[in-house]
Write a protein that binds this DNA or RNA. Structure first.
Lengths: 183, 183
DNA sequence: CATTTATAATTACGATCATCATCTAATTCA
DNA sequence: TGAATTAGATGATGATCGTAATTATAAATG
């Protein structure tokens, strides 16, 4: 049964939005096509009209998640502000709307080329953003290196803070990394 | 059909060993009970005689992977050696026998309490190992903080180096982080 | 306005998932 | 030697997986 073009576009967008949240919350292989479409008020088959396959949807959802966070990034003023938001308990406790790099990194190596390329583009963008704002000399290469190390520390701290079951250790991971990146 | 106690123990160990490799290669939710037992030369039923459930096996496999890497750690002399091995392309390209923290971190938050506790114990052990070997003053607390930041950087660098599809960027992530942790 | 065409979403499908009940064979122990 | 125990095979189960065929209706065409 067909639906108006408007309605179809709306459905597509809603699937994409919920997918970008769900894959961050439950992992890519942890969420099925049923959950992805049901949350958008449809049956699972509709996914194939809109995206052709789960893999294709994942590719777009990864891009959407990264783009969405990129938009937030534009509103952030300083690296220090970003770091302390990134390493906050609030961010740790809300993966669904949080950093896609942290949420998807260890699953990414097993995804399609397309998904990995979009992820990679996002990582490059993030490194660029950090590099442009980090004041460690004027040499481009040195700034890029520092940006990489900053990103690596942010992502590593967040995933480990989420993984451990001891709340004290989790807080300590965030705190120690925040302290290091600030000073 | 029954099997000798020896043979049964041997089977159990083989399932555990292959499981600890497979979950690191394909992810916990990416590998099924069939694959886990088949690789050990058994049918899926045997898993339930030995472990009761997939979750229980995962818990033991996580512990086994961490213990196995812990044994390797005893043979490593310096932190610098460890860092350069950890951040080597060889380690990046062989997740199955590599760091369990990096392989499982982003899936861990969705696992059973038991699995997360074993993971957490491993993280604490690793922090302790690093802390005891890092020469940044005598104050325990300061050393622990540095150990955490080191671990966080190692894990973050490895997962991101594995995730990105651009080999040059991947190498650069490893290189920049190695440089930072060395100097 | 009537008819055809295109297509969004439902429904049907086969494969695979983790689990469990049942069975078998052989070890272990009395 | 015989009885009890048990590791593992087997096949059924219901749930869920991703996909393809079907259907219903909007849009295009006359």
């Amino acid at each position: 049964m067909r639906v108006s073009k408007e309605k179809a576009a709306d459905n597509r967008e809603r699937i994409l939005t919920t997918a970008s949240r769900l894959i961050r919350e439950r992992g890519i292989s942890g969420v099925g096509v049923d959950a992805l479409t049901e949350a958008a008020g449809m049956t699972h088959g509709g996914l194939y009209s809109q995206f052709g396959s789960k893999q294709r949807l994942v590719e777009e959802a990864v891009a959407e998640a990264i783009a969405s966070k990129g938009r937030e990034l534009c509103e952030t003023t300083t690296v220090d502000d970003y770091v302390s938001e990134y390493l906050s308990p609030a961010h740790r406790d809300d993966p669904g709307s949080g950093c896609p790099f942290a949420a998807l990194c260890s699953e990414m190596q097993r995804q399609s080329q397309g998904a990995r390329e979009r992820f990679t583009a996002g990582v490059k963008g993030m490194i660029g953003w950090l590099s442009a704002r980090i004041g460690s000399g004027t040499r481009q290469r040195r700034r890029d290196e520092d940006a990489i190390v900053t990103l690596v520390s942010l992502v590593g701290a967040l995933v480990l803070a989420r993984a451990v079951s001891d709340p004290k250790l989790s807080d300590e991971i965030l705190r120690a990394t925040r302290k290091k990146l600030a000073g």
